[in-house]
Design a protein around this nucleic acid. Structure first.
Lengths: 322, 322
DNA sequence: AAGAATATTGAACATTTGATCGAAGTCCAA
DNA sequence: TTGGACTTCGATCAAATGTTCAATATTCTT
């Protein structure tokens, strides 16, 4: 351990655990106050000091209980919406990392799906962990599973499918899936106690779109066929049923049927543009746990309740729920 | 979950996880800035927001490695000494709580020994935990296992020996040990994967002294018989061997021989006045892990090295280690 | 519904924090 | 050793934080 790191630890300890002022700390450690500030910044950035919200499962807030009830989930974690950011991916990713760290047994594996948010979850987790975490990818396309930021500690052992996300042809995809190295990773995935997936929306900002896997025309087509969103690049309609796509047979990604056999599938997603997609994923019962922000959660519940009400009206006589 | 708690969570989230200013938060939540400050204070006090230092086992600092090497420990955790406080019990207790929380499996039991520091460890743990922790006492005397502070959440299930620490007579002690309810708790203790013990020094400030279990005369006597400290109220000499005491046969406390059979025994203690006692505990091989502060750690190592050197000199010819 | 007890607010102020400068110091390669 | 790249320092200032206190607002009691 080098000297800088030791200073960082001490500084963070004195500041956050002992409530000393920066002035005191600088005197104690014989450095300038400026350096204390810089060390604290670095400590926060590098995850040497971590902030954790205690979130009793015993006292879930109303929105969380509603999510659990309305959608039949095992658990839900709702974080406050940051009205300033344009998207809350980083926020929910942080929450997911917190959630997982509390529940991950030492040396257990985690499956991570494709997308911006899962990628952030991974980065946050790797940054927080004291011991390296073991991560299994659920799709091809290695880029999204690699560290985002430059200099940070990335405390993870990665077991990635050594393939692209999309093969050039159906034959190629099939051949790749037969590779021993590919089968091996897929086998690992079936053993992980925790799985993290993102949920893609049908819009310009979606990862599938931005990464150039699908063009705008493909998207329009998909929309016409009733696609409401995607999980692991498998597109689904609003009831959660798979939608046939042109890319499906070239895709190297864990099948939705396999996903359903996994335990503790945690969906992490937030944003107005994703409400429809998340609803679809929930309808399809792909998720056991949902981590999202408050705004999204409220919309999800409202949409579902409206649908339920409409249904009960159509079926007959029952008066409106108040 | 009541409204205040929800506000606390949101405030803490925005402040620590999203780096908003108190002003922004007050506007966002429609409360005054004063209230934000007050909520943050409460959140810190109640453990809604927690600070955690990442302490890689891969990069233990020099002092920790020295402790591990010199005393043959499994692990060591050394925290910065706070030169302002008169004792660092609360500091090392916090550290111990952090250490344990990272390693405790959900629903696992923890054994807790007698004393001020273990009591603080318990309080910190109960305060941090999302799910109640299960705690088994290693000695009689319930007072030290109950919450310190008034209003805090105390998230623990306590399995306490329903006896005093010291019975009035040998016969009484023996009778108590035969009680079913006592045997039950003792049986539980043998199953816990983690055990926390304090180490008592031979001085005025020691818990045994303050709590009135032993008088000053008893203490002097003990010192004359070579006692260097105590673990679970069993006194030991500087080599860690049990010292015969007048109270031993009236004591209701896990025997040292049983302690040795437990795994992951974590000793938590700090302070100049405890160096001798900790040395004794380490010599007796009662501990697998030591959590202490830097000052104490350095003194422990220095004392031990001096002893080793002297020994090698006495044995013969070898020149001084540099 | 009045009054007491308690909590929250707004405003003013002291302290602490964070950011920016040039100057001084340190490290590294040529 | 010299020059350049980089870090740290000290000083200054603006912003953020924490404290105090009297004035309101709210809650609880009777």
């Amino acid at each position: 351990m080098d000297y800088e790191e030791l200073l960082m630890e001490k500084t963070a300890w004195y500041y956050y655990l002992e409530n000393m002022t920066q002035q005191k700390i600088s005197e104690l450690l014989g450095i300038s106050r400026m350096r204390v500030i810089q060390l604290l910044n670095k400590a926060r950035k590098d995850g040497v000091i971590q902030f954790k919200i205690r979130h009793d499962s015993a006292r879930r807030m109303e929105t969380e209980r509603d999510l659990i009830d309305v959608f039949g989930l095992n658990d839900a974690f709702v974080v406050p919406t940051n009205p300033v950011r344009e998207n809350n991916n980083e926020t929910v990713a942080k929450a997911a990392a917190m959630y997982i760290q509390d529940r991950l047994e030492p040396n257990a594996f985690i499956n991570i799906g494709y997308g911006d948010t899962p990628s952030r979850v991974l980065n946050n987790l790797a940054n927080m962990a004291e011991n390296p975490i073991s991560v299994v990818s659920l799709t091809g396309g290695v880029r999204y599973y690699l560290p985002n930021t430059q200099s940070n500690i990335f405390n993870a052992r990665l077991y990635l499918l050594p393939t692209p996300l999309l093969a050039s042809s159906k034959e190629m995809a099939e051949a790749m899936l037969q590779e021993a190295s590919v089968k091996e990773v897929m086998k690992l995935a079936s053993l992980s106690p925790i799985t993290v997936v993102g949920i893609g929306g049908i819009n310009e900002e979606s990862t599938v779109m931005k990464s150039g896997i699908m063009g705008r025309n493909d998207f329009l087509l998909m929309k016409m066929r009733g696609a409401a969103g995607d999980i692991l690049c498998h597109f689904i309609n609003k009831d959660g049923e798979p939608v046939d796509t042109d890319i499906e047979d070239r895709l190297i990604s864990t099948p939705l049927s396999t996903l359903k056999t996994l335990n503790n599938v945690i969906g992490v997603a937030a944003g107005k543009s994703k409400v429809e997609a998340i609803s679809a994923a929930l309808a399809g019962q792909y998720l056991n746990v949902l981590i999202t922000d408050e705004e999204t959660a409220i919309q999800l519940i409202a949409v579902k309740r409206a649908a339920l009400e409409e249904k009960s009206e159509r079926i007959g006589g029952k008066r409106h729920a108040k």
